[in-house]
Design a protein around this nucleic acid. Structure first.
Lengths: 199, 199, 199, 199
DNA sequence: GTGTAATCGAGACGGTACGTCGAGTCTTGTG
DNA sequence: CACAAGACTCGACGTACCGTCTCGATTACAC
C-alpha cells in the first residue's frame, strides 16, 4: 500500500541544503544578485556547485528562496487583530518598515523584479511566492473590516494595497524620499481617507 | 560658420553619437539591459566600442540616456493646464500610461532601478535625470492647485506623487494587476480624496 | 567444483554482471571511452553505478574487459596450423583485419593506449591482458617454424611481430593508408623476406 | 604588394602567443592532455582563457601545436644525404629515437591519436600537420634511393615507412619491448632486406 | 526461523574541468 | 585628436562526468 515511494536512494542532505540557503542568505543579501557568485556561494556553503544547481535551476530562484527565508525569519507574525482597519494596517506596516529599511532587502528585491521582466516564468514564480503569499494576509485585514462594516463592501482591496505598498516600495527603490513608520502611517491614513469618499 | 573652437584633431562625429543612441534605444529597449550587449550595440551603430565608452562611462549610463530619449520622444507635452488638479493629473497620466504600457520601458526601468541599488553614484544620476526631471512638471501642477486654493497649502506634494506613481509602477513591475487609463484615474481620485481629509 | 569460498551474504548477481558487460560493450564500443558515460552504461544495464564500481575500479578497466570480450567474441580461433609460417600468419591476420576494420575497435584501443601512458598500473594490465595474451599464440606460430627449421632459430620473434602488428596498427590509428587483407599479406611477405636475410 | 590586410585593430600580441605556447609545451608535455587544464595553462601563461580560445578552438588543437613546436625544437635537421638509403634512414632515426624516448612525447601523441578517432576533423588536421609533414622528408630519402637505382622503382614507400615507424611507435606506445637506436637500425635492416626480395 | 552479511538499485554528493559570454580596457593604424 | 578594428583581461556562468557515499531492500547462509 503506502510508503512505496519512501526514499530509495541516498537521502538528500538537509545539512547541505541548509548550508546552501545559509550561504545564499548571507552572500546574496549582502552583495546582491550580481555581487555574489555561485562559486562563492558553493565555496562558502562547503558544497559543490552541481549540488546547488540540482535543487535550484538558477541563481535567481536561489536568491528568491533566500530572500523569502530571510524575510520571514524575524517576523513576529502576531495575529494582528486590533479591531480597526487602521490599527491592523499599522500593525502590519510597523515591522515591515523595519525589515525593509534595516536589512539589505531592497537590492535583491530590485534585482529580482528586474529579472521578472526578462523571464515570464520567473515572473510567475516571483508573483506567487513573494507578492501573493504576503498579500493574502493583508487582504484578510480588509476583508475583516468589510465584515465589520467599517469600510464599503465594494472596496477595491488590491488597489488599496497597491497604493500602500506601491508608495513605500517606490520610495525604497529610488530613495528620493524617506521611508519610516510615520510615513507609512500617513500613507495608511491617506488611503483610508480616499477609500471613504470613493465608496 | 567658422567653428571657432576647432581643436587640433579630428572633430567629434555627431553622426557616431546619433548612431550610438539610436542603436542603444533600439537594442536596449527591445532586449533589456542584459539582453543587449555592448558589442551588439557597437556593431549595430557601426561604431567602435571604444567610442561608446569615450562618451558613456558604462552601459547603464548609456541605457539611462537611451531610456530618457525614447521616453521623451513621443510626448506631446502640451502644457496641460485644465483648470483643475484632477484634470491636470489626468492629462499627465493619460500619455504616461500609454507610454508605460505600450512600449517596452519597464524592463529597462527595472534593470536601472536595480543598478541604482548597487551603485550609489548611479543612483544619484538616476534620481536626478529620470525621477526628478519629470517630477518637476508634476509638482508644478500641485503648486498651481495650491495657488488656486484648490488644495491645502500644506499638502505633501511628494507623498501625493509617490502615491500616484508608486502605485502604478508597482503594478507595472509585478504585473499582478492591470494598469490602464481608468485605473490611473481611480488612483488620482483616491489620492485627491485622501488629500482633502488629511488637510 | 570450486564454490568453496561461498560467502555469507547475498550472492553476486551474474545477471547484473552480464548486463554491465553487455552495456559496456555496446556503448563503449559504439561511442568510445569518452563518448559513453558511466551513468549511461549504468542506465542501459539497469544497474546502479555503484555496482559497476564494485567490480571494476575504473571506467578504463571496464572498457578493457568489454574490449577483450568483444574482440574474442567472433573469433573462429581455428588452430591454424597450415604447415608454413606464411600460411599461419595469413590465417591469423585474415580474421584480425576483419575485426580491426569492420568494428569500432580502434577508438577504444587508442583511448586505452593513451590511458596506459598516464597510469603505469593500467599500462601493466593493458600489456598483460590485451597485448601479451594474443601474442602468446602468435609467438607459437614462429616457434613452430623454428622447430620445422623454416626460419633461423635466432629470429627475434617479438620484433617480427611488432613489425607486422605495429605496421597495421599504425595505419589503423592514423588512417593515412588503407588496411586490408592484401596489405596484411604484403606486410607478412616483407617481414618474412627480411627475416631470411638477417638470419 | 599584399599587406593590404594589414591589421586595423590592435595587433595580436605575439607575446601572449608565445606565452601560451610556452605554457602549453611545458604543462601539456609534462602532465599530458588530461593532466593539464586550460585554466592552469592560462594562468601559467599569464593570459586569459578567452585569449587561448580565440586562437585555438580546443585543447586538442593547442596540444597539437605545442607538440609540433616541441618536436621540432631540438632538431638538427642536417640534410641527411649519406649516399645510401640505409645511411639516410639511420641518420633520420638516430635523433628520432632520442626525441621519442628522452622526452615525454608519447603520452601526448597517444592522447591526440585517441582524439583523432573521435573527431574526423581533428583526425584530418592531425594527419596533415603531424604525420604527413614529417613524412615528406622521409619519402624523399626513398625517392633519392630510387633515382640512384639503389632500390626498385616500384617500391611501396609508404608501406616501408609504416613498417619502420609503425614498429617503433608500437613499442613506444605499449612499452612491451625496448626502443633504442640499435633496435631502430635493425628495423631498418629488416625492412630494407624485405624490400630487396619483394622487388 | 531468525540473525548476519554481502549485494543491489536509487540517486545525492564533492570535485574539477570544460567551453562560453560579456564588460571594459588597451593598442594599433587611419582620417 | 577622434575614430574603427579588434585583441586582451577578468571573472562568472551553467554543464558534464567521475568516483564515492548513503540508504533501504534483497537474498542467501548459518545458527
Amino acid at each position: 500500500m503506502s510508503s512505496a515511494k519512501r526514499g530509495r536512494g541516498r537521502p538528500r542532505s538537509e545539512e547541505a541544503h541548509r548550508a546552501i540557503l545559509g550561504a545564499a542568505e548571507k552572500l546574496l543579501l549582502k552583495h546582491g544578485l550580481t555581487g555574489a557568485s555561485m562559486d562563492e556561494i558553493a565555496d562558502y556553503a562547503g558544497v559543490s556547485k552541481a549540488t546547488i544547481y540540482r535543487w535550484w535551476p538558477s541563481k535567481e530562484l536561489l536568491a528568491l528562496e533566500a530572500l523569502l527565508r530571510s524575510w520571514d525569519a524575524d517576523v513576529d507574525d502576531k495575529k494582528t487583530d486590533t479591531g480597526t482597519l487602521r490599527g491592523d494596517l499599522r500593525a502590519i506596516l510597523r515591522p515591515w518598515v523595519k525589515r525593509a529599511t534595516e536589512r539589505r532587502f531592497t537590492p535583491l528585491v530590485a534585482a529580482l523584479t528586474a529579472e521578472a521582466q526578462r523571464d515570464r516564468h520567473f515572473a510567475q514564480t516571483w508573483r506567487e511566492r513573494f507578492m501573493e503569499s504576503r498579500r493574502a494576509g493583508d487582504r484578510e485585514v480588509f476583508a475583516r473590516a468589510i465584515r465589520r462594516g467599517e469600510i464599503n463592501a465594494k472596496t477595491d482591496i488590491d488597489l488599496a494595497l497597491d497604493m500602500i505598498f506601491g508608495t513605500l516600495y517606490h520610495r525604497l527603490l529610488h530613495a528620493h524620499q524617506p521611508v519610516s513608520v510615520p510615513v507609512a502611517y500617513r500613507v495608511v491614513d491617506q488611503v483610508l481617507a480616499g477609500l471613504g469618499s470613493s465608496a
